[in-house]
Amino acid sequence: MLTYTLKRAGLAVIITAISLMLLISMIQLIPGDPAAVLLGPLASPEMREMFRQQMGLDQPAVIQIVRFFGRVLTGDLGTDVLTNRSVLVTVMEQLPFTLALVAASIGWSALLGIPLGCFAAIYRGSLADRIVGILSVSSIALPAFVVAVYGLLLFSVRLGWFPTIGAGDSGAPLDQLHHLVLPSLAVGLGWVGYLARMVRASMLEVLTENHIRMARAFGLPERTITYRYALKIAIIPTVVVLGMGVGNMISSAVFAEIVFARPGVGKLIFDAISTRNYPVVMGAVMITTGFYVLCTLAADLIAAGLDPRVRSTL
């Protein structure tokens, strides 16, 4: 297990580095002069030139990449060129909001999707299974932004149950939870169906295996067979997908952060790209990429823990 962990961690570092190099290369290809965009029409040519120097844009791409990695190693992600604040501070201010949204979305979708998948597998072919199937596919097919907008119109504007904007008052956890309901509904709904379908398929496969038949032959209760023996194995691919799902949800969070005017790292990156605020783009992507890689690493390690056969696959 230790060897597997070390190999997997090494791979994670390489993936992070490659992602960032791709990002920096893309930045070089994007049209638009950051100095013109950020400083506006009234800036003097001298001011623009000084600005380019501050951002390091007067240097070749290779130098920019080396400098960035050099700074990252010392824990310095650079300075936000708009506000002159530390990029690390700026990103860390926004990250908790995105993590809360991702955790809430993935949490409720897993809590609902996994039992639904088990239920559908146990009652395979029944009316209930078909209903779960239809609802699952519908929730996958429903675009998240449609859920967001109609959720706002119904639950906020019409019924007045939930707030339309913001993340709630700091230091008021109930208020923050209240602000999380609609965004997490929008981000997580598709995952309920996806997880339900996935768990159902895995469970159906596992439920036909010999050790399950053996358990039934021994007269173990169906509940014990399902949740203790079958689900433990069937959940492995789901755990891996959930790890990747975290990264997917960080991307999905962008639209939720815009529609619900929530703070968050997705919106931070979106705004920074629009304004060509490259230090913030690079710093924020560095942190989210690192986080995503950590999540997939954790998912792989959990899967390896649950099923020793996985350890030999790297």
Partner: peptide, 19 residues
């Protein structure tokens, strides 16, 4: 003063009484 970039979101917030 609440920054809301999207006009439509702001309109919904007004309609909901949040701003």
């Amino acid at each position: 003063v609440i920054p809301i970039e999207d006009e439509k979101t702001a309109e919904l917030a007004l309609e909901a009484g949040d701003i």
